[in-house]
Write a protein that binds this DNA or RNA. Structure first.
Lengths: 242, 242
DNA sequence: CGTTCCATTGACCGAAATCAAGTCCTGTGG
DNA sequence: CCACAGGACTTGATTTCGGTCAATGGAACG
């Protein structure tokens, strides 16, 4: 009882490039199944060699690495529409772990099919590279945040980005989106301590800009928040969905 | 009087995947020329739409973005063998700028050829995606550095990575490599102030671990430095060179 | 009801930023 | 040939942002 690519609830969101009927048919053929995991499950493990790659259909997770000193860096949050496992798919070994935060549903693709895809469906291979380029761009933005924004700006930046991303996949309801992470996860993503993260979040709440509590993020004043975050609110560019 | 791909001085370095004679012939055909630029030249400009993509043959540069508040983040340093411009190549617009620090020589490829490459040379297209995945991995490491390492660790980390990378392309001579950046560039890469960067560099010099002066980086004690940097010295993985 | 996990808040401390000179070097023009 | 101006690098003094420590509260759970 898996979801047909034709009926994919993400597909028609306008952050994703549209696909023709036959393209969808192919993607459907590329898909080998669906994986449903419970919160807390490790989907991909750093250093391992996953035989599968995935597209997130539902739910949220974190992508992280752990340093020698035991500290954890959340590289990014994983949302519906994200493609995961490309590194292992091409390079042979995961350089980070991916863990489910909420329950998640993933479309499963066989890793061994990737090369076939390059040989037979150049347009889809092109999409894959495009996805990697988009990811690269986001990571570059994150680097700029960690390097050049102070704690308040970083938090504002993260909340705005998350909010826009979730809104783009249709999870918004009256300026609020579901966001089931712990404050510790955000702290680990931004290179801040839990305590300080907590204090800055409170400040944003008190300022009436954003309120993240009980797994719900409400953006009260997007424009001001974006301004504080040094974010230029432009229309989000489209990207492929596989 | 351009360099033939067959005679490419980088090609046989063992961080790069080997290529057969016919593969080389194709790459040669994909190459449309060579570009030589002076220090200080902006090769790619954020927001612009370059008709070309490049592989660095010689010289060094920086890839950076500028935030709304005027602060500059160096996303990474560009070394021989790096492929640049992929984002513009696929997504249509550069998300960062690339500037030459030393004089540089670049292999030039026509951006419009990229799609043809996907259609006709899947193996090369695969390489391109691989390159993007490798890049993604490095950016993830950088994020972990900015987020979880303190100033001394960050600097040690950067110096080790740079040293290994330059050594891998044959620029090492007796534990020292040429490195013509300013301290400000390193500071902007690591999210540190110039002053503090200077002080930590001095500390490393005094500790007899690494000495970066007058455009030359000498790693006196790689093992200890790597340990301080929380780096696991493993053999560097190979990657494709286009 | 303990236990555990997460959020919250206050007190204190320290790493790194900022501020402020001063030193070299190199290139340039008188 | 020398004066000087601009860049990059150094170094010390001071400030501050954010980390660490410590304690408390609340909710979920067995």
């Amino acid at each position: 009882m898996t979801t047909d690519c034709q009926d994919c609830p993400l597909r028609n969101r306008d952050i994703f490039n549209p696909m023709s009927k036959e393209e969808l048919t192919f993607t459907q053929g590329f898909k080998t199944g669906e994986l449903v995991v419970d919160p807390g499950t490790t989907i991909l493990l750093e250093g391992s060699n996953s035989p599968q790659v995935y597209t997130v259909l539902k739910g949220m997770g974190t992508r992280y690495t752990t340093l020698e000193n035991g500290r954890r860096q959340v590289i990014n949050f994983i949302f519906p529409g994200d493609f995961i496992g490309l590194q292992a798919g091409l390079m042979g070994e995961m350089k980070h772990s991916v863990e489910a935060t909420t329950s998640m549903t993933l479309c499963v693709f066989r890793r061994s099919e990737i090369f076939r895809l390059f040989e037979q469906y150049p347009a889809r291979a092109y999409d894959l590279t495009w996805i990697a380029a988009v990811e690269e761009h986001f990571l570059g933005e994150t680097i700029a945040s960690l390097g050049q924004r102070d704690a308040s700006q970083r938090i504002a930046w993260a909340l705005v980005r998350i909010y826009l991303r979730l809104r783009a996949v249709g999870l918004e309801e009256g300026h609020t989106v579901p966001l089931a992470y712990r404050q510790q996860d955000l702290a680990d993503a931004l290179g801040l301590s839990l305590v300080h993260t907590n204090k800055r979040l409170k400040a944003l709440r008190d300022a009436g800009l954003a309120d993240w509590q009980n797994g719900l993020l409400s953006i009260t004043d997007l424009d001001t928040l974006a301004e504080r975050a040094l974010i230029d609110l432009e229309k989000p560019e489209r990207r492929p969905l596989i």
